[in-house]
Design a protein around this nucleic acid. Structure first.
Lengths: 162, 162
DNA sequence: TTAGGTGCAAACGGTTTGCAATCGA
DNA sequence: TCGATTGCAAACCGTTTGCACCTAA
């Protein structure tokens, strides 16, 4: 099976190089976690990540997954997000450009959108308020197409149950 | 503008009315929590909230604080935020306009800024991606003036060990 | 060989819940 | 009165840590 349909393999190589460069062992576990997240391509929770590793017939302890993610974040190839769900999600930095997140308030699906048009403004805003801009987060919470349709269907369709 | 420095009281009244309207008891605890958050005016954690109640010579159990906050959020008079600190912060909706948050990555201080210039754009962006915009979150993470100065001082001051 | 990584289970910290006692309307 | 709320402590849940064992280099 084509494990890495995208540039996941490229990122995996970069991770290995990064580890090698600082004399950190390339362990089976780190490789498995990295593969899983790079192949998936976006916004996975630790639980989902573990499941994907398991689905490939391997096992990595939960603590180790967290430790591997810590390393991946340090390497700059993965970013941690907190969408306020009570746990974190991890995103490989395939997407070169900065982007925001669209989060469905019903099903939790996450999509990305370009934040190009905000990239100049936000550091300016920070400056106006006496802050030194380091990074920013732009999120839109709403209903994805599927859930929007489902809501509308529920309202107009059958017996209303308000 | 209409809501004077003591708009906390106005909000408290609104909360009481909201409870009364749906036949929910106005308990001492709900009142104390509401008072504390409305008086403070912004971005408190549950721990801080409990401390403020205690400082006024009262006591409300932690679980009850959470339950009162749940009701306050439902009433629409308070909003919950997750700034990725591992716990939530609660903000009374005094601030008439929508706003974003500037969060100091060093000391944790939170300031607000107007997001007027994004209010039209973000729903459009959502629409382009097939999402129905409900609300959004714009955060800038960086250094507040004090911490920025401290960092610079540490760098140029020299006589400190790095 | 050995510094470092791993797995397990226990600890942690914020939040939620079960339940008997209590309270507001 | 009587259903809703409270307080306490225990449960929860995602995450971190201590420690004996293991493994990449």
């Amino acid at each position: 099976m084509a494990e890495a349909p995208r540039d996941g393999h490229e990122l995996l190589e970069r991770f290995r190089r990064w580890l090698r460069d600082r004399h950190m062992p390339i362990t089976r576990q780190r490789d498995l976690v990295a593969q899983a997240i790079f192949a998936a391509g976006g916004h996975l929770s630790v639980e989902e990540l573990e499941r994907r590793v398991r689905d490939r017939g391997h096992h990595v302890g939960t603590a180790t997954v967290y430790r591997a993610l810590e390393v991946l974040v340090k390497s700059g190839l993965v970013r941690a997000h907190d969408f306020g769900e009570g746990f974190k999600r991890y995103e490989p930095l395939l997407s070169p450009a900065q982007h925001g997140h669209l989060i469905c308030t019903r099903c939790g699906r996450v999509r990305e959108f370009s934040t190009e048009r905000f990239e100049r403004t936000l550091p300016m805003v920070a400056d106006e308020m006496g802050f030194l801009h380091q990074r920013h987060r732009v999120e839109i919470h709403g209903l994805c197409r599927t859930c929007r349709d489902a809501e509308i269907g529920a309202l107009t369709g059958g017996r209303r149950r308000a």
